[in-house]
Design a protein around this nucleic acid. Sequence first.
DNA 1: CTCGATCACTTGACGCTTCAACTCATTTCC
DNA 2: GGAAATGAGTTGAAGCGTCAAGTGATCGAG
Lengths: 163, 163
Amino acid sequence: MCTQEPRWLTEEEMSAWLGLASAMIRLPAALDAQLQRDAGISHFEYQVLAGLSMSPERTMRMSELAQLADGSLSRLSHVVSRLEKRGWIRRTPDPADGRYTLAVLTDDGRDKVVASAPGHVEAVRALVIDPLTKAQLRQLTEITRRVNRAIDPDGACPAERSS
Amino acid sequence: MCTQEPRWLTEEEMSAWLGLASAMIRLPAALDAQLQRDAGISHFEYQVLAGLSMSPERTMRMSELAQLADGSLSRLSHVVSRLEKRGWIRRTPDPADGRYTLAVLTDDGRDKVVASAPGHVEAVRALVIDPLTKAQLRQLTEITRRVNRAIDPDGACPAERSS
DNA sequence: CTCGATCACTTGACGCTTCAACTCATTTCC
DNA sequence: GGAAATGAGTTGAAGCGTCAAGTGATCGAG
């Protein structure tokens, strides 16, 4: 209870927020639409396939993969079931620890990624990279770092893992 | 066919993109979670109620409202049905043109917005406004303006409508 | 060594979004 | 003035995500 009195947004804050709110809704929708139209898969499915394709042995544990793709384990399980039916992924228990399940990209799955990647990268370029200056791109990196940290202070942000 | 050869992303472009991709997924989820937890409504429902509350006569045509909230007319129709059941919105045909439907915020609906707004604004502050410097906020405004324009060149971007 | 706790996942039911019809009102064109 | 075309909105079915409960494997205390 008792939220003091709310600190309303100034004009300047409001216009940054409205712009972000709009982009936040429409950018995922636009990227999903491109992938759905040109490749018949969702952005989430693409992230799963692309994540596997860049992994050693094209293999990853379900839980790692869920974190990489920013989704719940349950969601990933459903999605991988569908991708398995389409012949792009196989599942097998981890020989090292039977509780884990390994998702493995099949050859057909790799072909699918290779076929879908250029169109997706072009879309990202067209909608995000190309409209911005080099300086804005650097600013965006720092801005999203701060926002991501605010959302989840000790969360593994994909942008900062490895390398 | 024949996508030339794809212009892959440089290191710098990649880190901006990964950061944005992560924020783009998790920011809506975080805001939805706050509203769901504290007010029992989704971010989309909040936008609908808040949009109406700021409108003259607390009334808007369904199609205007759909555009304001960045959703399809069908989605809005379903959502308004639910909000109507909860007693926050009434629907009535537009006397000026019977094809249009007017959505009107009830008094209970206004109370709901007034009760939910402070918590939502606090969340926006905590996740976006406060973590950024004043300069970054200005940069974000320009960055999102460009991205929004790339997504829909002549789209009515909420940030630029009116005022 | 065994039993309970924990962990990684899977499953099924429910709710929301989308898509494709459909309805009804209004405009347009003979 | 009447028929076809257009436009706004609604509806129902299908698909996807979430939540809670369930399964099986492994760890750890006694």
